[in-house]
Design a protein around this nucleic acid. Structure first.
Lengths: 137, 137
DNA sequence: TTATAAATAACTAGATTGGTTATATTATAT
DNA sequence: ATATAATATAACCAATCTAGTTATTTATAA
């Protein structure tokens, strides 16, 4: 399952993308605007920073800003950065397929099902999402 | 995530489907043939029976057999019978979409991704799987 | 130098997963 | 009849994962 943390990370990036370039926003503002527990925002920003997507300046008037073009990050990338590799079954995590003949046939089906799902997430960028949200309201 | 139990249930049904009609196979034989813990096979058969897909006769010379045409059961049905409703995110389980504007936009994307995955599982029946496995070996 | 903000790290309750263990029930071969 | 082979049912458990919380440290603008 895609975790709530991954979903939060996407929302955080969308929030950052929807802010004017050159300006910063504090982690607390993000938390308030999006109703995410403040400490979780901080925790997730650490990972987003490690990915090279965001950066923060400390102290008064400090805050977070995007480092990259939001059209360059897709949802799959964010989910995998937060949750690690995606696998709809445990089977798809193991390197070697198992011996069982039915099981091996299943592996291909799981892989196809998963790829169908991932292709949707790959198609949608943070920018798409931020624009879509703005249009909805 | 689709659990190992659901995967086992699919394998059990495929094993049953690959046996000559009219004959039975014991739960222990299924366990041995497919390398599934024997007690888990029993546990899962209880659910498959409840679904109306299998039945068992007790006593010596007893065993399990399919009650329905294996082309009539698809993988999604089995997974949902064992694991309950499938949801790639927690969001898709809640009835009402949340207030957050980005979040609500996300919901539709999750739903599309999930449906793309499920359609693969819906396309494949237990019969398909049993035949595919036989051909592979 | 002090308030403010990010950054880092460690901890936790509750749920889920993948089983195991124990016991009951039933049908049939002898 | 009765021992036995088989299904059936229920309760339990350790390990892992999830969604957080708590505490501490570091940097910087005023």
């Amino acid at each position: 399952m895609i975790t709530k943390k991954a979903e939060y990370a996407i929302i955080i990036l969308a929030e950052l993308a929807s802010h004017p370039e050159g300006t910063v926003i504090t982690s607390k503002e993000i938390a308030r605007n999006r109703a995410i527990p403040s400490n979780l925002v901080v925790q997730l920003l650490a990972v987003l920073k490690e990915a090279g997507w965001t950066t923060g300046t400390r102290g008064p008037a400090g805050g977070i800003r995007l480092l990259i073009d939001p059209s360059e990050i897709n949802l799959r990338q964010v989910v995998e950065k937060i949750d690690g590799p995606i696998g709809i079954t445990r089977c798809l995590f193991s390197e070697t397929p198992c011996q069982n003949k039915t099981h091996c046939s299943l592996r291909g089906i799981w892989a196809r099902a998963q790829q169908n799902m991932l292709s949707v997430l790959e198609e949608v960028s943070i920018k798409d999402l931020a624009e879509k949200a703005a249009k909805d309201c």
